[in-house]
Design a protein around this nucleic acid. Structure first.
Length: 750
DNA sequence: GACCTGCTGCGGCGTG
C-alpha cells in the first residue's frame, strides 16, 4: 500500500482536505478511497461505493466532494457549489453533520442538516447560502418541492453532487421510488444531469443497484466494490429446542384469571421458551450482546424473562428491550449504555439495531427463530467481531413436538432447515437481490399530487413526461396512467380547469396540505402508552387492549388504567402480572434460493458442523421424515383427500402457483413450505400442472382479482379495483416463475 | 404470520 502522501488520490485532493487527513494520522488511504477519490473529484460520473465497514466509505465520498466544492486553486477556501446528501435516517444525518463540521473547519463550506427535528434557524441558513453540504431525508426534500416549488431552481442552482447513503435501504420499496422521482424532478428543474453517488454496505446485486441509482443508465455507473475482507473469524452455533407444554394450560390460566388470581407469564409460556431464556442469561451475562428476536412481541417476552432472571438472583438488570414501538428516549438510553460500555448491557431487539448509528462492537449476536433474510442475518452478524475478535453467532430454533396430528410439512423441521439454509448461504456470501418488479402506483399518486403542488398545476401530458416517459415510473403504461388520473379525479384528488390544467381537488388539497403527505410509506395508526403523563411507546390501533387488563411492555409489567379512544392514548400503572401484546404486521417473503438450499440440505448426507446435540437430532428427524414422505424423488404427496405440493421455491412463486391452481378449479393454499391442493389426488394435480405449462400464462390481474385485502400501500385506497389488481400483482405475483416451477414439478417422480 | 423508516407552518406560552 502506498503512503497517503504519495498516492494519486491524495494528490487530487484540495490542500485543506489533505491537511485534514494528516491530522487524522492515517497511514494510508484505503483501496476503496484510492479508487473513489479521482473519479469523484472529476465530478462528472455516477458512482456506487460499496464497502463493508462504516469507516472509510463516508470519507471516500466526502473527501473528494469537499475538495471539489473548494475549487482548484490551492489558497482558495471559499465554497463554490452544493452537494446534496440524502439519508434514510435522521440519526445518520446527525452523525454525519458532526463529522462534516470537523472536516470543513477553517473553510467557508456551510453544512446544514435538514429533517423534522431541525429548527428554523438551520433551514434559513440554507435558504440564504444555497451552497455547501445539505444533509436531508427524502421526506424533507419532498416538503421542499411542495412548499417551495417555485424556488427549487434557485435553491439548487449550484448543485454538483447527489449523494445517497444506505442505498440498499431504498431499492425496490415505495420510499425508493419516491427518491428516484425526486432526483429526476430535480434534474428536470435544473435542466441538467447531476452526478449521483450511492453508498452502501450490503448490496445483493450491483447491476440492480446501478440501475436504481440511474434508471435507464445503470451500465454507465462506475461501481467501486471493496474487496477488503474483515478477516475476523466466525464462531457459529445453531441450537435446537423442541416445544414443551407450559406449566399452566390455557384453560387453567384463564380460570385463575377469572378468579382474580394473578397468572405469571412464565407459567403460560412454552417450557422451551423459558429454557432459551435461561441459556441466554447464563451465556451472555457480564458482556455486551445483541439478541435479535423476529417480532416486537418476542422482544418483550424474552426481555421480561431475562429481567426476572436478574431480579430473582438479586443482580442488576442488564437485559433491555429495543424496538420501534418504544419511545425515542427509552431506545436512546439503551443505545447509550451499549456505547459507553461501563456496565455489561445486552439489548433484546428487532431490526432497529441492524443499521444506523454506531453502537460499538458487541461480544456476540443471538438470533431467536430463523432469520427472514440472509441480508438481514449478515447485517446483524456485522455488529459483532470488530477489533479483530471472532464474530459469535448463536441461533435458537424451536420446533414442534411431533404426534399423530402433526401435518407432514411440520414434521420436516422447516424452521431448523431454513435457519441452516440461511447460514449456509451466509457462509457462501450470497445476499438476496431486491425485487424491483412493482409498479408502485401508490407512490405515483403521491408524486402526481406533489408535481401539481410544485408547479401550481400541470397538464396530463406534462405529468406523463415528468414522471413516466424516460422517468422512474416508466413501467406504467399510458392506459394505466390515464386510468389513474381518472380515478384521482373521481376521488376528488384532482380536478381539471377549463383550459385542461390539472389542479388539486378538494380532497387532494387537504391531503397535500397536511404534513403526513411527505412520506411515501404506510404507517399504521397508533395509541400512545402513557405512564404518569410520560409517553413510553405506542401500540397499533387495530390491536386494542381492555381496561384493567395486564400488559408487558418496555421490559416491565403494567395494568391498563384507561383507554382514551378520542385522543388515542392508553394510561398505564405498574403491576406485577402481564402478557406481551401482539403488534400485528405482514409477513415477508423467503427467496427461491433459500428453499433450494433447504432441498439440498434434506437430500444431503452430512450434518452441518454448527448444530448442537439437540439440533442434530431434530435435523436427523427432518431428513427421516423427508425420506418417509418420498420427497427425495417426488414433489407431490398424498395427504388424505388432499395433495401436498413441495416445489422448493420461494414464497412469491408458491403463492402464484397456488393462485393459478385455484383459478383452475383446484382450490389450493400455501401451507408453510408446501402448497395444499384440496380434494385432488396427485395424478390429478400432475395433470393440472401439465395444463399450466401448456396453456398461455394467465394474466396476473385476473389472479389478483380473487384475493382479499390488497390495499397495503399508503394511497392504495384511491386505486380502483382494476388498478389495484395490476399494482398488487406486480408486487406479489410472478407467473413466469410459477410456470417454471410447474414444469419442474411435472418432471418429478417420473 | 415481520421488521423499519418520516413529517410543515403557525399559534400560544414561558423564559431571558
Amino acid at each position: 500500500m502506498t503512503s497517503a502522501e504519495s498516492s494519486r488520490a491524495f494528490e487530487a485532493l484540495h490542500p485543506h482536505v489533505q491537511r485534514w487527513i494528516w491530522r487524522q494520522g492515517w497511514g494510508a488511504l484505503t483501496p476503496t478511497q484510492e479508487r473513489a477519490i479521482p473519479t469523484l473529484v472529476a465530478g462528472d460520473q455516477d458512482v456506487i461505493v460499496a464497502a463493508a465497514t462504516a469507516g472509510g466509505k463516508t470519507e471516500a465520498a466526502f473527501l473528494p466532494v469537499l475538495s471539489r466544492l473548494l475549487g482548484d486553486e490551492p489558497g482558495h477556501y471559499e465554497c463554490e457549489g452544493l452537494a446534496l446528501y440524502i439519508s434514510p435516517l435522521k440519526a445518520l444525518i446527525n452523525d454525519q453533520f458532526q463529522r462534516l463540521e470537523l472536516m470543513v473547519e477553517g473553510t467557508d463550506i456551510p453544512v446544514v442538516p435538514w429533517h423534522g427535528d431541525v429548527g428554523r434557524k438551520q433551514k434559513d441558513r440554507f435558504f440564504r447560502k444555497r451552497q455547501g453540504v445539505l444533509l436531508i431525508t427524502p421526506e424533507s426534500l419532498e416538503a421542499l418541492f411542495v412548499t417551495h416549488g417555485h424556488r427549487v431552481p434557485q435553491l439548487f442552482e449550484r448543485l454538483r453532487y447527489l449523494i445517497v447513503d444506505e442505498l440498499h435501504a431504498f431499492i425496490g420499496v415505495e420510499r425508493g421510488m419516491q427518491l428516484q422521482s425526486l432526483m429526476h424532478r430535480l434534474e428536470l428543474t435544473l435542466r441538467r444531469r447531476v452526478p449521483r453517488v450511492g453508498l452502501s454496505a450490503t448490496l445483493g446485486d450491483m447491476g440492480l443497484a446501478a440501475e436504481f441509482l440511474r434508471p435507464g443508465g445503470g451500465e454507465q455507473v462506475d461501481t467501486i466494490v471493496s474487496t477488503e475482507d474483515s478477516g475476523a473469524a466466525l464462531k457459529l452455533q445453531v441450537r435446537g429446542y423442541e416445544h414443551k407444554p407450559p406449566a399452566l394450560s390455557t384453560n387453567e390460566a384463564e380460570e385463575r384469571d377469572e378468579r382474580g388470581e394473578q397468572v405469571d407469564q412464565a407459567d403460560t409460556l412454552n417450557g422451551d421458551v423459558v429454557d432459551i431464556a435461561r441459556h441466554l442469561f447464563r451465556t451472555l451475562r457480564g458482556t455486551n450482546n445483541l439478541i435479535f428476536a423476529n417480532s416486537r412481541r418476542d422482544v418483550e417476552v424474552y426481555g421480561d424473562l431475562l429481567r426476572r432472571e436478574c431480579d430473582s438472583l438479586g443482580v442488576p438488570v442488564e437485559f433491555f428491550p429495543h424496538h420501534g414501538s418504544l419511545s425515542k428516549d427509552l431506545r436512546e438510553h439503551v443505545e447509550t449504555s451499549l456505547k459507553t460500555g461501563t456496565q455489561p448491557v445486552t439489548a433484546v431487539c428487532t431490526s432497529t439495531l441492524e443499521m444506523g448509528i454506531d453502537i460499538g462492537a458487541v461480544a456476540s449476536i443471538a438470533q431467536i427463530g430463523p432469520p427472514h433474510q440472509v441480508a438481514s442475518l449478515r447485517q446483524r452478524l456485522g455488529r459483532s467481531g470488530r477489533r479483530g475478535d471472532a464474530a459469535v453467532l448463536r441461533l435458537y430454533i424451536r420446533e414442534d413436538r411431533i404426534d399423530d396430528q402433526t401435518p407432514p410439512p411440520d414434521r420436516l423441521r422447516p424452521a431448523l432447515f431454513q435457519a441452516a439454509a440461511m447460514t449456509e448461504l451466509l457462509l457462501e456470501r450470497w445476499t438476496e437481490p431486491p425485487r424491483v418488479s412493482a409498479l408502485h402506483l401508490s407512490t405515483l399518486i403521491q408524486q402526481i399530487l406533489s408535481v401539481v403542488a410544485q408547479y401550481g398545476g400541470a397538464t396530463a401530458q406534462g405529468l406523463w413526461n415528468v414522471l413516466c416517459e424516460s422517468a422512474p415510473f416508466s413501467a406504467v403504461s399510458q392506459d394505466h396512467f390515464l386510468a389513474l388520473l381518472r380515478q384521482m379525479g373521481a376521488a376528488r384528488l384532482l380536478m381539471q380547469s377549463r383550459d385542461g390544467t390539472l389542479l388539486h381537488g378538494e380532497h387532494g388539497e387537504r391531503i397535500v396540505n397536511h404534513y403526513s403527505f411527505y412520506s411515501a410509506f404506510n404507517a399504521p395508526e397508533e395509541f400512545s402508552l402513557a405512564v404518569d403523563g410520560k409517553i413510553i411507546g405506542t401500540l397499533p390501533i387495530d390491536r386494542p387492549v381492555m381496561e384493567e387488563s395486564y400488559l408487558i411492555f418496555s421490559g416491565r409489567r403494567w395494568r391498563v388504567l384507561h383507554v382514551d379512544t378520542d385522543h388515542k392514548r392508553i394510561d398505564l400503572a405498574r403491576a406485577t402480572g402481564g402478557r406481551a401484546p401482539s403488534f400485528g404486521g405482514t409477513p415477508g417473503t423467503v427467496h427461491d434460493k433459500v428453499r433450494d438450499k433447504m432441498f439440498e440440505l434434506y437430500r444431503g448426507a452430512a450434518d452441518p458442523v454448527y448444530l448442537d446435540t439437540q439440533a442434530k437430532e431434530l435435523f436427523t428427524e427432518g431428513r427421516e421424515h423427508f425420506q418417509r414422505l418420498g420427497l427425495r424423488d417426488e414433489c407431490l404427496v398424498e395427504d388424505g383427500k388432499n395433495t401436498l405440493v413441495f416445489p422448493w421455491a420461494g414464497d412469491i412463486a408458491m403463492d402464484t402457483l397456488a393462485a393459478i391452481l385455484t383459478s383452475k378449479a383446484t382450490h389450493s393454499e400455501r401451507e408453510g413450505i408446501c402448497v395444499r391442493v384440496k380434494d385432488a389426488q396427485p395424478s390429478e394435480v400432475r395433470a393440472k400442472l401439465r395444463d399450466i405449462c401448456d396453456a398461455p400464462a394467465p394474466s396476473p390481474e385476473d389472479l389478483a382479482s380473487g384475493v382479499q385485502n390488497k390495499q397495503t400501500e399508503k394511497y392504495d385506497e384511491y386505486l380502483g379495483e382494476d388498478l389495484l389488481n395490476v399494482d398488487w400483482s406486480s408486487r406479489r405475483l410472478d407467473t413466469q416463475a410459477a410456470i417454471r416451477v410447474a414444469g419442474r414439478l411435472t418432471r418429478s417422480g417420473q
